[in-house]
Amino acid sequence: MSRLGSASGYRRRKRQQENMRKEITWKEIKYQKTLIIWAILFVIYGFIFYYLPLGGWLMAFQNYKAKTGLFGSEFVGLSKFKWLFNDESFWNTVRNTLGMGIINLVTSFIMAIVFAILLNEVKSTGPKKVVQTISYLPHFLSWIVVTGILQDALSSTGIINEVLMKVGILDQPFNFFLQPKLFWPIVAFANLWKETGWNAIIYLAAITAIDPELYEAAEIDGAGRWQKIKNITLPGIKSTIMILLLMNAGNVLNAGFELQYLLENGAIVDWSRTIDIYVLKWGVSQNDFSLGTAAGIFKSVVSIGIIVVANELAKRTGEERLF
């Protein structure tokens, strides 16, 4: 016990030493000049490509024209935002983005955890490895490829229609891509298909890290499989789940672009278009940079808000947090 205590004390002291910042002196600067020069180059690069675009947010408050540029265009205050907030189709995109984002977030979490727990129960290593390897292959396919595969699977001669017709649910092929009500579930399914195996890797790693003695003790106490999962496995991976939920919460508004863009058609556009596509249509196709930027700012602000709220909630409940 005392040995442990002193070891951790030593480690703490060492960490404090490491974290203690060296004083900034000319001697030190001269010694580190290589590092400092590189650091400056990286700051310049980062400033240009990551921070400079933030200056473009000015456009949202202007009537931006390419001819007059960022500094010569007329300022119009909040009128672009007013137009945006009065546009019904914009609110549709907000609803769609949030709706699909949340459905994707929830379903992918549940599926990944269920898959990880079940895969962990597969005791023979051979089949386990094979299943796992296959499970995360789709993660490395592009959304374009996934869309192509999805179009084949859901086409009038595809497997889904074929099965549904054989079972007798359908009399004739059904066009899935023209159904507004089915669009969100299709996106959720495609997302599960692509990412479940990949998302499960991290839970599998967390499950492996749980002390096997806990399971043995539970077995001696007569706990069944379900009790072991409920009382040991799930609590054991709880902190991983919380961290990932937090990290992904901020991405809710990013959860939809490619599939929605590729599958969009007139019949479903009210339920498929997301904020990103709205920005693309107005900003690039219609060349209204100001409106596109305004919608982009709205998205960024809401995203950061979600991260902060999620972080605050996690802090209140005493869970892990990001910052």
């Binding site: 675009p53 473009g56 693309l280 690039v284």
Partner: peptide, 28 residues
């Protein structure tokens, strides 16, 4: 021992959360 390591890390970590968005980037 790098004098500005925490500042430099923070400078880059911020870029993970804040970005200008599609149109400003295109303009840049």
């Amino acid at each position: 021992d790098f004098l500005f390591k925490s500042e430099l890390s923070l400078f880059w970590v911020i870029t993970m959360y804040v970005n200008g968005g599609l149109i400003p980037v295109l303009l840049l």
